[in-house]
Design a protein around this nucleic acid. Sequence first.
DNA 1: TCAGTATATAATTAAATGCTTATATAAGTC
DNA 2: GACTTATATAAGCATTTAATTATATACTGA
Lengths: 115, 115
Amino acid sequence: MPQLAMEIGAAARVLKLLGDPTRLTILAILNQRECCVCELLEVFSTSQPAISQHLRKLKDAGLIQEERRGQWVYYSLRPQSEYYSLLQAVLSYVPDQDENIRKIEKANPAVRCGC
Amino acid sequence: MPQLAMEIGAAARVLKLLGDPTRLTILAILNQRECCVCELLEVFSTSQPAISQHLRKLKDAGLIQEERRGQWVYYSLRPQSEYYSLLQAVLSYVPDQDENIRKIEKANPAVRCGC
DNA sequence: TCAGTATATAATTAAATGCTTATATAAGTC
DNA sequence: GACTTATATAAGCATTTAATTATATACTGA
């Protein structure tokens, strides 16, 4: 069902953000599970600053939110976003990220010591 | 309802095409009515080659199709596209283009003589 | 306070993007 | 065939984008 119509320029701006494979994958992952940066790093073969910069763009657009917990910063989707349902609609066309999440959980980078 | 999952890189490529305000508007217009290039030109304050170049990208991606009729080339959405339902989902969040279509019909550039 | 880990920011660069102008192609009219 | 209209293509250019490397900041724990 269509939502409230948004300005077309604003929609294009959001879609442009989604139109990058790294960002789209980040969003698809965050749609299944919040993650910190070092967890997302496990998924991509790119540098940490590159991921941080993508996250910043998504945050600036209000699509995601961050929450610091100790030394980690956890990112999650921001359901209050005006574009949340557009995002959900798009993500429903994207494959689930179980594989990538398995990769994250296997590496388990956010916990260094199991003592 | 989610469709068959598509490759995430392919989805990003399509979304990148949608992430331009001119192209997104073109698609929203074509979703309501087929148009030739000179009709689309009425809507945007940009050059004819710019519009043709956007149309070519959309055609290369299989999102639209062209049909020549005399000196005019009419463009329309391509429902057979693998991405048609993603496109429809996105367009449902975009305002209707009645205003732009009125502009086209008022100018009526594809017919020069009413005799 | 120092060392280590997590993350962000800044500066630089290469590549991609979208526009413009100029020109080519195609069809229609006389 | 010459002229006009519609559209496409090519070349050039300015801007944007996404990456990299280097560095700064924030937190943790000894």
